[in-house]
Nucleic acid binder design. Structure first.
Lengths: 236, 236
DNA sequence: CCACTAAATGAATGCCGTTCATTTAGAATG
DNA sequence: CATTCTAAATGAACGGCATTCATTTAGTGG
């Protein structure tokens, strides 16, 4: 069975802590050597991914950065997927939910959505993991949902619409995170341009008019539409 | 180098053709034996995925269903990713764009979006492939974009907003496709329920009130919001 | 009948995640 | 201090995977 994380997560962790974190690890009294633990593995994994990307992220490579044999990792983690879950949950603490506590709902959602997209556009291989991961396995992610839900509730959303609305935003965010990684010439129709006149001219006009990054234009457009449409669900 | 598909795609293929398709394959005059070709590989791949899922989809398994050695596949395809591209492009022909030719814009987008989501919710491992794939490598996908672009243009969208609007819809669709595959208990906060009161009560209220599938509720909500918000961009 | 070539073969390669019997070294116990 | 217990690290395996390549096979045009 995969357990992911053990401690109850303490939801008031202000932002994050990089580098070697505290190591309680004190069950009853046993060897306190412990070269490895989940926080250390998570930090090393994040650093390795930053340096080598997800292609270079292997259990062997991770073990090497920790000066340990690959098999040693399996004393603290039950699979590679488990490591990805730890990384995902850690990254979620970089998502900005601060404005949900006080500010107006629209701006809170904007801050949240943009930061959420930016964090995971650099980690798209995690999206398939997040999307089907029970919140129980990711305490910091659960804390994010609590902050967002509280904000929606405070803004006057009817209870039964809160989760669907959040899911709709999130779906858009995940899809948009992929879009950020698309190559610049993804819409170049090449030799087939002649047979796709409407599409080709639309692509050209976008390239001429806009000076911003295409992914940002599309994200802004969709986000504002969702804000307007879903914001209308609020009670007076 | 990956070439994906060779023929220029003829954009008026009405819907699709299952089973063994036509085999031009006629460069100058050579052995016409040809046990294998891209269409056959695509059809076999789709069938294998349907039967064994993406975990069971290996080059060896694919070769076995075609009664061929695994290495034989590489005479027609340059990598496993290439096969996925072929499958993705084929699946795109199942997406419904018919209403863009005549009907009202809103309903056309609805038909398109729901069918698009339904097709790829059964093929989420293809989403990372689609999202960064140059349209040149996927002729049927390009044909879909042409139909959709034409519909947006006909509906009065300003040229420079057509692509961003389509991308926004698509991002939402891809994200929502993942959502369909999420386990039913994904939002069960378990032992941490006490520390996440707003979230927990919102989840509970949704479960009580709604009889529809949660993924469908969220998709409908988001889609209608995007329709309203983006539809407003049209010229009178 | 010969020469040519696209296509199929099967063995080999290298990388991967994961398992497991075994060893190591601190902590608690008396 | 010696004994015992155990979490943690080790290194050699294993099976599966995509991909490569020298070689063979079998139609076709000349």
């Amino acid at each position: 069975m995969t357990a992911a994380t053990s401690v109850p997560a303490d939801p008031h962790s202000p932002a994050d802590q990089h580098g070697p974190a505290a190591k309680p690890r004190r069950r009853v009294g046993r060897p306190a050597a412990a070269v490895l633990d989940q926080d250390g593995i998570t930090a090393a994994a994040l650093q390795l991914i930053g340096k080598s990307g997800y292609e270079g992220f292997t259990m062997a490579a991770l073990a090497r950065t920790l000066n340990v044999a690959p098999s040693a990792l399996y004393n603290h983690v039950s699979s590679k997927r488990d490591v990805l879950v730890l990384v995902q949950d850690h990254l979620t603490s970089f998502v900005d939910v601060a404005a949900f506590e006080a500010g107006p709902w629209e701006q809170a959602v904007r801050d949240w959505a943009w930061s959420y997209r930016d964090v995971f556009s650099k980690h798209t291989p995690l999206i398939p993991v997040i999307a089907v991961l029970p919140v129980t396995d990711a305490p910091k992610t659960l804390a994010m949902y609590e902050a967002v839900s509280a904000g929606f509730s405070r803004a006057g959303f009817p209870q039964e619409r809160i989760i669907p609305a959040i899911v709709a935003f999130e779906s858009f965010i995940f899809g948009s995170a992929y879009d950020v990684t698309a190559p610049a010439d993804i819409f170049d129709s090449g030799t087939m341009a002649a047979s796709t006149p409407h599409f080709t001219s639309a692509v050209q006009r976008l390239a001429e008019d806009s000076h911003d990054k295409p992914a940002d234009v599309a994200f802004s457009l969709g986000l504002e539409a969702l804000l307007a449409g879903l914001g209308a669900l609020r009670a007076a």
